[in-house]
Design a protein around this nucleic acid. Structure first.
Length: 529
RNA sequence: GCGGGUGUAGCUCAGUGGUAGAGCGUCACGUUGCCAACGUGAAUGUCGUCGGUUCAAAUCCGAUCACCCGCUCCA
């Protein structure tokens, strides 16, 4: 395998992220806090640029003008919903149940099981003998437990000779005489412990159990609960999408792999609503276009893949739909495997249905589609009421940033910095740099002039750097590590013949262009023309 | 949550019981004419944290926190 990702060291990338101000450990001066990361000056701009690129290509100019499956323009509107919502939102969505799975650990085999997936067996009528646990719906596990029980009892046992009960029904004393699946010793299973993946907080100052609220574990539900508002107040019609970016929070059991699995993270989500008949086409459309988008933003190589989920790994809401695809990136820490950047899920009408049917919501969420239904006497369709299906392209912004950092990291022993960050110009935090060759003879003044010009023109897209100090090579090297695509150098000739040197980050090659062409050069380089 | 590893300057790391170091980076001044040039000078650390052993701890012991790896988990 010749891919570069396996030769890149995550330690080196993390070290550069710290050294150059991309990403810091959160609360570092207090020893850090597990699962949280702060973005430094370059990282914050990089992240904003990625978010802005998404916003531009999803909300402002959906799919860059690419028409949908039927040839119509893609319609998307934005929202910005709260991190804290009525807790009933999370009951309806299934998060309050699903995010509270109790787990059991085995001290002997170091295995962990979902407590509700474990069952145990003992000989009929024997209240004191050892109990043997096995994994639900796992014949091998069941047979092994039965065999161990038989060996313990020193007789052949069959299914008819045993009692079975859920592990969660066992008392502490019974757990102490239980042998775990795959275990040899008795009493190695821990008591079931709840792993609450949602962050809790309390509304109001009294902080009683009645005031519990949750930080959202995904931004999607904020969109679903506003579906009716958007339909009622905006001139949208199905098919259309609602998009938002924002923070979400999950109390991950094991935050790991730099920012890849953080407890606080930012999502970029679209919920695209369409008629069930068209859902499969829209699913394929979004899946392919989102893949193309990540490629265009700089993840063009073989480290990016589109992977269709197997049936057995589909989430509960996706069972009925066309499926789920992941756009995955081969990170240094996952190689040769991949880690998820974005999931495109066909959620059918699971979420709208759940909210409509929650006993306390009491709101009809059905959409009246006036383009469907039988024709009335006047020749107009009578309309059809339905809960739209949903295609959900849900991307992790922090994961996108991390993938871009990993992809951009390019070792190059030939250059002074030994490494440069090959960001796509669109996401590069520093768009251009202007340097006087030396800090005298009118060059700094000329450089300041060009710098101001570029700031005025491109400053809204990212940082325009300038620096009159130290040697030119040192300044180039710094820009290499920051991933600045273009450096313009003012020298003596600039003052006489009106040209500047432009240095290309990726090739380190230099050429002279007229001072007056610099703005156009940058515009072209950033893909603005 | 389990097991293993790591933790010393911004980064990479040396330092195995006796006055905290190096390289690079950063900053200042000078110099400098296209790839971390050079000269001079400077700043930066409760050696992750807390406790213990000791006349004496970066060093030994314990706990704890964070990160990395393997499990586990992952809407």
């Amino acid at each position: 395998m010749s891919d570069v990702s396996t030769t890149k060291s995550m330690d080196d990338i993390m070290s550069l992220c710290k050294r150059r101000g991309f990403i810091y450990q959160a609360s570092e001066i207090y020893g850090g806090v597990n699962g949280f990361w702060d973005y430094g000056p370059l990282g914050a701009q990089l992240k904003k640029n990625l978010r802005d690129a998404w916003w531009q290509d999803i909300v402002m100019n959906p799919c860059q003008g690419k028409p949908g499956p039927k040839g119509d323009p893609v319609s998307i509107v934005p929202v910005d919903t709260c991190i804290i919502q009525n807790p009933k939102v999370w009951e309806a969505s299934g998060h309050v149940g699903g995010f509270n799975d109790p787990m059991v650990d085995c001290r002997e085999t170091k295995s962990r099981y979902r407590a509700d997936h474990l069952f145990c067996m003992g000989e009929k009528g024997d209240k004191s003998g050892q109990i043997y646990a096995f994994v639900e719906n796992n014949d091998a596990s069941f047979d092994a437990a039965l065999k161990k029980l038989g060996k313990y009892k020193k007789k052949e046992l069959t299914k008819d000779d045993i009692d079975i009960c859920p592990l969660t029904d066992l008392s502490v004393d019974e757990l102490a005489i239980t042998v775990g699946p795959d275990a040899k010793e008795v009493g190695t299973l821990t008591e079931p412990r709840a792993f609450n993946l949602m962050f809790k907080t309390y509304l109001g100052a009294t902080a009683t159990e009645d005031d519990i609220a949750y930080l959202r574990p995904e931004t999607a539900q904020g969109i679903f609960i506003n579906f009716k508002n958007v339909v009622d107040t905006t001139r949208v019609s199905v098919p259309f999408g609602i998009a938002q970016t924002g923070k979400a929070f999950r109390n991950e059991v094991t935050p790991r792999n730099f920012t890849f699995r953080s407890r606080e993270f930012e999502q970029m989500e679209i919920e695209f609503f369409c008629h069930a008949e068209e859902a499969n086409d829209w699913y394929a459309f979004w899946r392919d276009w989102r893949m193309q988008w990540w490629q265009e933003i700089g993840l063009a190589g073989e480290n990016l893949i589109l992977r269709e989920h197997d049936k057995d790994e589909l989430a509960h809401y996706a069972k009925e739909g066309a499926g789920t695809s992941d756009i995955e990136y081969r990170f240094p820490f996952t190689a040769p495997g991949y880690g998820e950047l974005e999931g495109i899920a066909h959620r059918s009408n699971y979420d709208l249905n759940a909210h409509q049917n929650h006993p306390d919501s009491n709101t009809k969420l059905e959409y009246l589609d006036t383009t469907r239904g039988e024709l009335a006497k006047n020749g107009q369709p009578k309309g059809e009421r339905y809960l739209p299906d949903v295609i959900e392209p849900s991307a992790g912004l922090d994961r996108g940033v991390l993938a871009i950092l990993c992809e951009a990291y390019t070792p190059d022993p030939e250059r002074p910095s030994k490494v440069f960050m090959k960001f796509h110009p669109r996401v590069a935090p520093i768009k251009a740099a202007v340097f006087p060759l030396v800090n005298k003879d009118g060059m700094p003044e000329k450089a300041a002039e060009l710098h101001q010009l570029l700031v005025k023109k491109f400053g809204h897209l990212g940082k325009i750097e300038t620096d009159p100090k130290q040697s030119i090579g040192k300044r180039y090297a710094r820009m290499d590590e920051a991933g600045c695509p273009f450096c313009f150098t003012i020298d003596g000739d600039t003052l006489t013949d009106g040209t500047v040197t432009v240095r290309d980050r990726d090739t380190a090659e230099q050429k002279r262009i007229p001072f007056d062409d610099v703005v156009q050069f940058v515009a072209t380089g950033l893909g603005l023309t």
